[in-house]
């Protein structure tokens, strides 16, 4: 499922990121925030009183906010992360 559809406060991990859907610099920023295949994510808040706002999610130990178009490029699976020390 996409990160946009992930229910709030449900532990999940990143299955796949469609880097082509992201601009080079946005992709880089997401990587720098620790988003990558296997990273643990948890959607915390959906913003936006009027219409659909950004999503705040926990990535590792960090809380990051992104717009829905970015979140839509991220496919997640629920459950604990699979990536143990690679």
């Amino acid at each position: 499922m996409r990160l946009t559809d992930l229910p709030l406060r449900q532990p999940a991990y990143v299955d796949l990121i469609d880097w082509n859907a992201l601009s080079a610099s946005d992709g880089q920023r997401l990587r720098e925030f620790g988003l990558c295949e296997g990273a643990s994510v948890e959607a915390l808040h959906h913003g936006g009183l009027l219409g659909r706002g950004p999503i705040a999610c926990k990535v590792g130990r960090m809380t990051v906010a992104m717009r829905r178009n970015h979140a839509a490029a991220i496919t997640v699976r629920t459950g604990p992360t699979e990536e143990e020390d690679a």
Binding site: H45, G48, L50, R52, G53, P54, A65, R67
Partner: peptide, 14 residues
Amino acid sequence: MARAAFLMDALMAR
């Protein structure tokens, strides 16, 4: 401040 930015983003996007 960062929370305010989060709350305002939907409006700012418009």
